[in-house]
């Protein structure tokens, strides 16, 4: 499978491992919410208008906007 670059590029059902963040300011908040490097993340679904999106991470569901999802780098 082709390697993805960030969470915003994932499709519903995709799973990946968080590798890092591209935005320091958001990174602090995302990590507090359980998005940590090395943690698996699953893309669940998007809102009807394509934004925000819902992901599963660290055992619960998180919603974030596409632009925020784009700052989470992943590997799969």
């Amino acid at each position: 499978m082709e390697s993805l670059k960030n969470v915003a590029q994932m499709k519903p059902g995709d799973v990946g491992i968080i590798t890092g963040f591209t935005d320091d300011h958001l990174a602090a908040k995302l990590m507090e919410m359980g998005c940590l490097p090395g943690v698996p993340v699953r893309f669940n679904f998007t809102a009807p208008l394509g934004d925000p999106v819902c992901i599963s991470v660290s055992g619960y569901e998180l919603s974030l906007r596409l632009e925020e999802a784009a700052t989470i780098s992943i590997l799969n």
Binding site: K29, S63, E68
Partner: peptide, 8 residues
């Protein structure tokens, strides 16, 4: 930004 938990 909108980083929000979707509770069960």
């Amino acid at each position: 930004y909108l980083i929000m938990e979707l509770p069960t």
